[in-house]
Design a binder for these strands. Structure first.
Lengths: 249, 249
DNA sequence: CGCCTGTTTGAGAAGACTCAAAACGGGTGG
DNA sequence: CCACCCGTTTTGAGTCTTCTCAAACAGGCG
């Protein structure tokens, strides 16, 4: 009755879902919302009682600091379950902004609770993905805390590339970055000026090529070796999950 | 039959658990392990199929970078469920090291799966805590990415203090930091030398007082205002959770 | 008492930041 | 179709924070 949700496709990468499970997911999602690029979907500190599933496009979550600065925390792509801070609080912990034109669908907290009750295997899978999210966050922490500008940017580019590939399917080598250098800086903890110089330096060293906002990674394997980048989304363990509910059917 | 787990006490802060829920938790934990200060409980890259519940003492999780550096990702206190990266992978994503003498108990992935199946409300609560963990991580990212040495250290101290208070109960004002300045630096992304100078500077400014490794925060309210610190563990929303299973009983 | 680890201090170097201005590019209105 | 305008990118010069290297100092333990 409804278009298949990007969330079920995402979960299906890790596990063959039952019909019941798919239905439970698709049923839980309501009200698709179009979010044009640049629009704020959820504001830090605002009240929330719903999560969102990204169906199309990408967004980022960010925090604003008292000191005036901004930190971009994470980019979100189709299949991601976002706004999860509303699971733990009634106020949004951070701001969600559309990077490109997006379509997201709402998934209310209460419906999530129903899924947890009726589909324990899905609950476990969602928990595993939250754990993966945590580790991805830890990677970024290590990148920003302990590496220099070049390595931070290289890691960011590899991360974005890996995530875009999931959606795009094929092997992409170059991609459009609809981010300003200010945005990039806010993501990796650098000034826009220094981002600019560093990108220039990376180009000079032959690590990347640029034309406008299109970026090509010249030698990906080499860059991965250089940064030690690990794609945390490639696989997720599912061996421990309970049996699906409707096994009898 | 078994000592009440620190995990159920933790969850009980947010929600009154049923007998069944408490039993399910306590039953799932096996084999208490004593971990002396400094010992590595789990090594990055090593195989794992179990989580741990911290019962006593504290630990930290860290990553080692190719470049030789180390990033301490998070400190763990009684009631924390740790090693959660094993939920998503068979290999540990990071290293767990005891900061003080600890007691932890094992909670196998499979038993976690059983809890998810039998006690959906607990599953939801664990998911909420993972979401809270994510936001706490985001806070650290913003701190390290966008603030200077003094603010980073101030935030770290406030964070540790807030977490210690939960365990200690009463109002603590000063506390022992069983961390070397190297450790502190690895946590906030600074060199040990710079940590030393910055702590000195903070003392000179009257923000903290030190004697040995004991630290006293002189004016906590002021420091909280200065850093914009938020304790993410104070409350967790529970309104969306499904009803407990054994409601009929 | 000496050793070892961790802390403190010094001096110089490097990376990243600020302020400022110029160049670029895409979009709008004349 | 062109001129203008705005946000973004690029470049320059100088400063500041943090790092590196190095050595002295302190404290606990065998």
């Amino acid at each position: 009755m409804m278009r298949r949700s990007a969330l079920s496709s995402r979960l299906e990468r890790y596990l063959q879902l039952t019909e019941d499970e798919r239905d439970a997911l698709d049923w839980a999602e309501r009200r698709e919302v179009r979010v044009p690029a640049g629009m704020v979907l959820m504001e830090q500190g605002g009240g929330v009682d719903t999560l969102f599933v990204v169906q199309q496009g990408w967004l980022h979550s960010s925090t604003n600091l008292k000191s005036g600065g901004r930190q971009i925390l994470r980019f979100h792509y189709p299949g991601d379950l976002i706004g999860t801070s509303s699971i733990a609080w009634a106020q949004a912990a951070n701001t969600l902004t559309a990077v490109s034109d997006c379509i997201v669908s709402e998934l209310s907290k209460v419906n999530l609770g129903r899924i947890f009750k009726a589909q324990p295997r899905l609950a476990g899978l969602l928990y595993a993905m939250a754990a993966a999210e945590n580790v991805a966050m830890a990677d970024r922490l290590a990148s920003i805390g302990r590496t220099d500008a070049i390595e931070r940017l290289a890691t960011l580019l590899l991360d974005i590339l890996a995530r875009l590939r999931v959606t795009a399917g094929g092997v992409i080598e170059s991609f459009d970055l609809p981010l300003t250098q200010k945005d990039i800086g806010d993501a990796v903890g650098l000034t826009k000026v220094h981002v600019n110089r560093t990108l220039g330096e990376m180009e000079r060293r032959g690590m990347i090529e640029r034309s406008g906002r299109r970026i090509r990674i010249v030698n990906e394997a080499e860059l991965i070796a250089f940064t030690g980048f690990v794609d945390r989304y490639a696989t997720v363990a599912t061996d421990w999950l309970p049996q699906p509910t409707a096994l009898a059917a």
